[in-house]
Amino acid sequence: MAIAAAVCAVLFGGTWYAMRALLTVPASPVSPSVVSLGAFKEVSPPKPLPALAWTDLDGAPLPADAVRGRMTLLNVWATWCAPCVKEMPALERLQTQLGGPGFGVVALSVDRGGAHQVKPFLEKTGLSRLPIALDMPGAAMQALELRGLPTTLLLDAEGREIARFEGAAEWDGPAMVAELRKRMGGV
């Protein structure tokens, strides 16, 4: 009986260690909150952006064509979303690096507190060059069919969604900048 118990213990212990080795995922060199460039999901055919009532930080309505005329990276975020907060400086650096007549970044806040919540966040973080829009009616999440935050839509010059990126990213990283330049026609 003791031998049978010992054999079971050895077999169970060996099985446990084998299963543990199979189920253990090696540590990734990339933070799990940062999604790789390959996570861009193409939207084909391009999808028109639904009509949304956005405002600027002062409460002035933004025109429907605010994201037309150039390729736009529309990042949907909130101040309470840790991955969103983490990527905001990279979005501002991307806007500083590539922003111009052919490309722009717009950060659309879905914070219910609107400007009262977003302005202190911007002051605290020192973000001043990133164009911010507010979704005061709170319709963007549903209208854009978002599964979570942050989600970033790549819009063509006609304001149509051509690709989607779910999760946080290093927006000003060399691979991302190269990909965006390629999509802009090598600018």
Rank of each mutant, 00 (worst) to 15 (best):
V118I: 08
T79H: 05
A21K: 12
K47P: 00
G113N: 11
G126K: 10
W80F: 14
A21F: 08
V10Q: 03
K86H: 13
P101I: 01
C84S: 14
A107M: 09
A115T: 09
K119D: 06
T125A: 08
V110Q: 05
A51C: 03
R68M: 08
C8Y: 11
W16D: 01
L37A: 13
Q97T: 15
V110N: 04
V7L: 12
E92V: 08
R20G: 12
A5I: 13
A66I: 10
K86R: 15
A18N: 03
V85T: 02
A66V: 13
C81P: 08
P83F: 02
P83V: 04
G104D: 10
R112A: 15
P29A: 14
F103S: 05
M19H: 10
L11T: 10
A60M: 09
A107N: 09
P83C: 02
G113Y: 09
M19D: 07
L91N: 06
V105Q: 00
G38E: 08
P29N: 13
F103D: 05
G100Q: 04
L23T: 12
V110L: 06
Q117K: 09
N75S: 11
V25R: 11
K41A: 15
V7E: 03
T125N: 04
F12G: 11
V76F: 03
L37E: 12
A21S: 12
Y17A: 14
P46M: 05
S31I: 06
S33V: 14
P46R: 03
M71K: 10
A64N: 01
P50F: 04
P48H: 07
V30F: 07
S28D: 15
W80M: 07
F103T: 04
Q97F: 03
A9L: 15
L37F: 10
K86V: 12
G69L: 09
G100V: 06
G126H: 09
W54N: 02
A53V: 02
L94N: 02
F103M: 08
G102H: 14
